[in-house]
Amino acid sequence: MHYEHAARVKRIEPPLSAEEARRFDEADNLFRGDLLSVLAESMLQVYMDMPTGKDMWDALEAKFGVADAGTELYKMEQLYDYKMVDDRSVVEQAHEIQMLAKELSNMECVLSDKFVAGGIIAKLPPTWSGFATSLKHRRQEFSVTDLIATHGVEENARAKDTRGKRVHDEGGSRANLVQRKNPHAAHKKKKTKNFIKPKATTFKKKSKEKGGCFVCGSNEHWAKDCPQGQAKEISKHGH
Rank of each mutant, 00 (worst) to 15 (best):
Y3T: 03
H5G: 04
V9W: 01
P15Y: 07
L16F: 04
E19V: 14
E20N: 12
R22Y: 13
R22K: 10
F24H: 13
L30P: 00
L39R: 10
S42P: 00
M43H: 11
L44F: 12
Y47F: 15
M50G: 03
M50T: 06
P51M: 09
K54R: 15
K54Q: 15
M56G: 01
W57G: 00
W57Y: 10
D58L: 03
A59F: 02
L60S: 06
E61A: 04
A62N: 11
D68F: 09
G70R: 15
T71R: 13
K75S: 03
M76S: 01
E77H: 11
D81N: 13
D81F: 03
D81C: 05
K83E: 15
M84K: 10
V85Q: 07
D86L: 02
D86K: 07
V90A: 11
V91S: 06
E92S: 12
Q93D: 08
Q93I: 09
A94M: 04
E96M: 06
E96Y: 05
E96L: 06
Q98K: 09
E103S: 13
L104W: 07
N106T: 07
N106M: 10
N106C: 12
C109T: 15
C109R: 12
V110Y: 07
A117K: 00
G119S: 06
I121H: 00
I121K: 05
I121M: 06
L124N: 04
L124C: 05
P125N: 12
L135F: 06
L135Y: 04
K136H: 09
E141G: 10
E141W: 02
L147Y: 03
A149Y: 00
V153A: 09
N156Q: 13
A157L: 06
R163A: 15
G164C: 09
K165R: 15
K165V: 10
V167P: 01
D169R: 12
G172W: 04
R174K: 15
N176D: 15
Q179M: 03
N182E: 11
A185H: 14
A186K: 14
H187V: 05
H187E: 12
K188E: 10
K190Q: 12
T192P: 00
F195T: 08
K197I: 13
P198M: 02
K199C: 06
T201Y: 00
E209L: 13
E209H: 13
G211Q: 13
G212A: 11
C213G: 06
C216Q: 08
N219S: 15
N219F: 02
E220H: 05
C226R: 04
C226V: 03
Q228H: 08
Q228K: 14
E233L: 11
K236I: 05
H237N: 13
